[in-house]
Design a binder for these strands. Structure first.
Lengths: 234, 234
DNA sequence: GATGTTTTCGCCTGGTAGTCGATAACTAGA
DNA sequence: TCTAGTTATCGACTACCAGGCGAAAACATC
């Protein structure tokens, strides 16, 4: 029997496949998602996630990076990870399209120049979105909020250098509730997620003690806490 | 402008899409995965995950359920959840095929009758597997082990009724290390994951105090611990 | 200096994981 | 019935961590 080779038949049905990115960032104290306004039918006038098809030479991650480049400078996207693949039969009215979602994060201090059809929208004040894109947004926000607690994913939301007060506000906006600076500092330093530097921030108009400047230890995703329970014996 | 309708063009390239299931279960004290031996090229003679194509009327979950039915009684699969979608260009030598993985769990007390080409294989003694299936297996095992700590996913690995000793051995096999019965009981009961019943198990040959029979409170996935850190204020 | 503002540190509390030894509840056999 | 062996369960103890609060530090302005 000859070895299988390129061109031999595969009996699997084919479907158009698209990738969609939920790009999240904290803007002016609110967690926001990047959306663009559709000018074409279907769902003309509604707001949609960046994304599109997958070229034959591209992996999914390369495809979403390419589509993102049309909306933002992809070097500003500090973290990108896959979410779920959705397969509802008529999620697109034209044909059956499978869609794989991605979560992208942009630090709060970078201000990418956006095309005129593209804007940041606060998570808790979303407009009508196209297709089933709200499912992807919900999943992305849930994933981010969970990972803020047990990974160092904050590095992708924060500037390279920051004070604890800034980080407290950033985490507060991302999580949707306020938290104390004392405990935040202690948790993140004990887990070696952030480190203090020698530098101090210059106080604002009204004075006050100058804050220590912190940085994230690593700038790629690492899990910090092995879930705390049912640990292996010493 | 007319509204978009079925049959309108979508500019997304199409790809054959397959679904693959990593079915895990504890058999004779070892965490095992369900594999079948390929009789056809490519990868003839190697062991592969159950799976196959997606019919036009099926969602991904329905498709994997259908393919699983050829190997096990799907009613024995107590839990099924999506893993990642893989897109390496030549993960299949015949053509470009996208693949979405699923994690399935079978309780340790059910003994599905398997086709002659299908067997359980211990996780730490795997044969050569076909295609990129080992990536799916690794991801599935990691997902299971993580979720054992912060969800009630154990319900899908355990019998409906069980003793703490049985559960300790079950978790030990799934996690890959032994753990203490005292702490396991305390953690799972405080989180309302398991509940004691009035019934007692009958001691074995060698006697001993009869063990309390426990059950899982819920039989669908619930997250028990909101990750313990950076909680909202009271 | 005096006052106001902001950050940071130390102390306290409560809750949870993990371990170990004592006790309970059975079987089998003398 | 009593004793020894076996297994399960409970209580006590330790260690660690999250979370909160107030005091003190370190700046600003006046």
């Amino acid at each position: 029997m000859p070895a299988a080779k390129k061109g031999d038949p595969v009996n699997f049905p084919s479907y158009p496949h698209e990738v969609l990115a939920v790009v999240l960032s904290v803007r002016d104290g609110s967690l926001c998602v990047l959306l663009w306004k559709r000018a074409q039918s279907p769902h003309r006038g509604r707001w949609a996630l960046p994304g599109g098809g997958v070229e034959p030479v591209q992996r999914l991650r390369e495809a979403i990076t390419g589509h993102l480049a049309a909306k933002v400078d992809v070097r500003d996207v500090a973290h990108l990870e896959q979410l779920a693949t959705h397969s509802a039969i008529d999620r697109d009215p034209r044909a059956r399209v499978l869609a794989t979602g991605y979560l992208g994060l942009v630090p709060s201090d970078v201000r990418p120049t956006l095309p005129s059809d593209t804007q940041w929208h606060p998570i808790d004040d979303l407009p009508r979105t196209a297709f089933d894109h709200h499912y992807f947004i919900e999943a992305a926000v849930a994933r981010l909020r969970a990972k803020l607690s047990y990974t160092n994913i904050g590095f992708a939301l924060a500037p390279v250098e920051f004070t604890i007060a800034e980080l407290r506000d950033l985490f507060g906006a991302a999580l949707g509730y306020e938290l104390g600076a004392t405990n935040l500092t202690r948790v993140l330093t004990r887990r070696h997620v952030i480190d203090p530097t020698e530098r101090r921030a210059t106080p604002g108009q009204s004075g006050g003690r100058p804050a220590t400047v912190y940085t994230f230890v690593a700038r790629e995703l690492t899990v910090t806490d092995p879930f705390a329970v049912l640990r292996p014996p010493r």
